[in-house]
Amino acid sequence: MRISEQAKQLCRARILDKAAELFAARGFDQTTTRDIALAAGVAAGTMFNYFPSKETMAMTMVNEALARGREEFLTRLDGSESLEEELFLLIGTELRRLRPLRPFLGPVLERSLSPFPRKSVCPEGETARQEHLECVRQIMLRHGFAATPEDVAATIYWSLYLGILASWTGDQSENQESSRALIDYAIRTFVQMISGVTQGGDHDC
């Protein structure tokens, strides 16, 4: 018997829901794929048809949240924002969507988004990177930054962004407000860098 597409989607969603619950309750590392299959009421073999690993599950949740955040970000723009403001809104809106997953994100992001060379690259992590950077590229285009060497700017940006994610995931302050100041600072730094503004310590006070 063939399962309908709708039933597949429901099953997939149920697995993700249960996985999220377990990750949040026990922590990512303490949750096994067996636990998730059991909670979702599916056979382990079936589950692997949907998700080859729990990293994939977690990063799928992350990507879905980020994508929703980016959609929402576009609706929040009114065209009057500066480059700094747009980038700030993008990151802010994405992180707000990511917030429910925050309790277990640390090890997930560390494994899936690590910028260092690895044996196996997590495809969902790569998707997260490319989709976010594409959105940033569009924003920069809107603000006339087409001339900046893209790979350099993207690498610098991505390093700052990973720093923000790392800080935000472990941020103990209320509403992660310490990270908000960091985002502000990091974006200003980035924009100043790609604007080619060179300021020494000896003027512009």
């Binding site: 600072y185 200003r188 730094t189 100043q192 300021q199 020494g200 310590g201 000896d202 003027h203 512009d204 006070c205």
Partner: peptide
């Protein structure tokens, strides 16, 4: 001290030792 460049100058007020008055 004033001649040392700060790591970044993204806030205009970040480093204010530059001017003579400062």
């Amino acid at each position: 001290v004033a001649a040392r460049r700060p790591p970044t100058t993204s806030f205009s007020r970040l480093w204010i030792l530059g001017s003579l008055q400062a």
